[in-house]
Design a protein around this nucleic acid. Structure first.
Lengths: 195, 195
DNA sequence: CCTCTTGTGTACTCATCGGTACATAATATG
DNA sequence: CATATTATGTACCGATGAGTACACAAGAGG
């Protein structure tokens, strides 16, 4: 049984709300008053529950990976490399054009406007982007073994290409591109796919 | 003859230095102490010469368009749509991997971590990105008239695609991708080009 | 030489940033 | 009921943000 006064808010819901703020504003752009207001709690409660703004951000990143960016993991389960690529692009478009979501990619948006303080945040985000790319590369390596990618394809190049297009799509969404326009981008990008 | 005490610094050089800081840190991430230090002047001189941080940023954007992003205008002069696309991708790679430059694209990086204050900056950057895309689209429309793009190609889609890849490349560069890796991305992207 | 104009440098303003001290409220355990 | 423990809310902290007032310096025109 938990001792002491019980927490009066739902910590998962609060984290979700914080994620939205970080997603919209980036790490440094999200201020504590904004965060606490969106989370419906006050400052000391935030610090008691999450430790600090930076720890809160890292937990929000984890939640992002499980939730809005979950399509990335799901895509890995597609049967062929081409299906993986299609699913990655479609998933990106779906997320960045969903009206309930901020436009753009948290891993891209979050990194900027970093004072020296947030240099560690910048590295963290770059590391997470690279980890995603590495997972895709590994999936494409398997695809070559499976025979659904030509043996002379370079899985690292293909992974980098797909990730670049995904990130480009995210930026375009932030510039105001709509779903249909982004689907055309994805379709064009897939014309380059080896077969 | 100019009246009063003469300015003791080169205003163009100072603007160049400011551009570098904005490029590296974004609009809000660039602080006045950083800016004045890089520019070699003190705060009142900055305000006297440029008006405000926001006006300084806008002037830095103009300089960016003429300087580091000048390849965009040059690319429009290429004889065919494909050559334009190649030049755009190559130019992007050149700029974002030049060791003398910050990594990434000012128009993408600058927008982030915007408090409400800087919402106008955000819009300005989105507008400039869209203006660049529109210029590319117009060039591709001409290419169709010239016959060096198939008549059933959609210039808007192609422009959006190329811009997306350019922006993706810029993000990848910020993640640490090197020139050779980005050239592979560009080569892959061009496999999708209509012929 | 005096004055007018413009640039420079120091030292300030006020707002806001992330983070916290402290008093109080709410629960579990004894 | 008493006490230990944890959460909440107010009100603060020092640091730093953008922007500026003001005294002084350097030139031009008279």
């Amino acid at each position: 049984m938990p001792r002491g006064r019980p927490r009066e808010f739902d910590i998962d819901q609060a984290l979700d709300r914080a994620l939205r703020v970080f997603w919209r504003k980036g790490y440094e752009g999200a201020t504590l008053p904004e965060l606490t207001r969106a989370m419906g709690i006050n400052r000391p409660s935030l610090y008691a529950a999450f430790g600090s703004k930076e720890e809160l951000f890292r937990q929000a990143l984890d939640r992002y990976a499980e939730g809005p960016a979950g399509y990335l993991g799901e895509a890995m389960g597609e049967p062929t490399a081409r299906a993986v690529a299609e699913r990655l692009l479609d998933g990106t478009i779906e997320v960045v054009t969903d009206r309930r979501n901020p436009r753009g990619c948290l891993l891209v948006q979050g990194a900027l406007a970093c004072g020296e303080t947030a240099e560690s945040i910048r590295r963290e985000l770059a590391a997470r982007r690279l980890a995603g790319e590495a997972a895709i590369r590994k999936r494409f390596e398997r695809a070559i073994a499976d025979g659904d990618l030509p043996g002379d394809s370079d899985p690292a190049d293909l992974a980098r290409y797909i990730v670049a297009v995904m990130q480009g799509i995210a930026v375009q969404a932030a510039s105001g591109a709509n779903r249909a326009e982004l689907r055309q981008v994805a379709a064009l990008a897939l014309r380059a796919w080896p077969n």
